[in-house]
Design a protein around this nucleic acid. Structure first.
Lengths: 196, 196
DNA sequence: ACACAAAACTAACGGTTATTAGTTTTTTGG
DNA sequence: CCAAAAAACTAATAACCGTTAGTTTTGTGT
């Protein structure tokens, strides 16, 4: 009879969710079975249900935990007195850090949110939309104060969020460049471009 | 007894593949059933097999058709005599155009390639890797000729490809900005940055 | 109009799915 | 050390999956 290993300060539910994030990232949510998840946890599938309510609940937990962390950081950044470019830089760095430190979870939230059931799907999309709008507000502020070029704020948000999200492809090249160098170069490109 | 509607110059296989792209984009490959696909085509599930070999063959067809189109364009761009920034701009425009004109197919190739079976999965990844390396070569050339800042070429490739890919989120905002304006602003941001 | 091919149908196959019920083992607290 | 709670197990369920076989209908070329 196997036992679920729990990390320090973590419940068994957390352990299952973490393994779920890894599995869902590798295979996709719909293509992952509870039996596979149970295997990776080291237990029979039915035993999982002593700790979680359903398969979809795991996905829900992953998606909203990630979404809430981004929202929290944005809350803090908005309150700090800093110019628009500084705020943007702060958020870009946070996105990169989240991507590198919570890879599985962020990846799953980015890719598998479509498999959420209503009303969670709608909630998730609303939250993301609101996040994007607040980001656009920061850029608008920078434009009106003259520190940012007059570009459509939503286009800028799109590019920045997509670029940091693209770090999911970075794993492979990790060796060739240090993490700090990566962050600096991304920030530099996204803010200042690449042409001389 | 229903009949599959075929577009002009298209086989029934093409019609099924196209509906498949739409379905796989909306629900994901693994979460889409052949019965659902048959419904959207207007036929019974078993009838599909008169035209296609398997479910996975549809995905394969979508992914490699898209990949080959991008590779073809890169072949052409490489042969034109143009500086690195001009080549990059050309490719960025092509990516944006593909994303807007073949949304379902490009989206599926971007998101569902993980569900490909071997050896197709490895082939697909090799092709993508090769594409990225050739893009990095263009940037390296621009750096050595002085037209592009000295940034890690792979970081630049990452940002550009991710940004154009991010257009999958654009659909929603389509109303507020014209397509040509969108392209110009994206090219401008990716090449020249946003700071004044 | 008739023969042949193409493409639809119905029915069924073995396999997998998430989840539940009921039981047994393990852990915990007094 | 014993009782109660937690967490594991086995077994089974009904639903759904991709795909095949066999049959019938539809379209086509002469």
């Amino acid at each position: 009879m196997a036992k679920i290993k729990v990390a320090k300060n973590g419940t068994k539910r957390d352990a299952i969710t973490q393994k779920g994030a890894g599995l869902f990232r590798k295979k996709g949510f719909a293509a992952s079975s509870m039996r596979e998840l149970a295997d990776s946890v080291g237990v029979e599938a039915s035993s999982l249900y002593n700790h979680i309510g359903s398969k979809s609940e795991i996905l829900r937990s992953i998606c909203f935990t990630v979404a809430n962390r981004f929202t929290s950081q944005l809350n803090e950044v908005e309150q700090v007195s800093q110019d628009a470019v500084g705020k943007l830089e702060n958020l870009i760095r946070f996105h990169i850090q989240m991507m590198l430190e919570n890879f599985d979870e962020v990846y799953v939230a980015n890719h598998e949110w479509k498999q959420l059931e209503e009303p969670y799907l709608s909630n998730f999309l609303s939250q993301r939309k609101a996040y994007e709008n607040r980001l656009a507000d920061i850029i608008r502020d920078g434009i009106s104060k003259g520190s940012i070029k007059d570009i459509n704020p939503h286009v800028v948000v799109l590019i920045i969020l997509s670029a940091v999200r693209g770090l999911e492809f970075w794993q492979r090249n990790k060796k060739n460049i240090s993490e700090s160098e990566l962050v600096e170069q991304m920030v530099s490109h996204l803010l200042n471009g690449i042409t001389k």
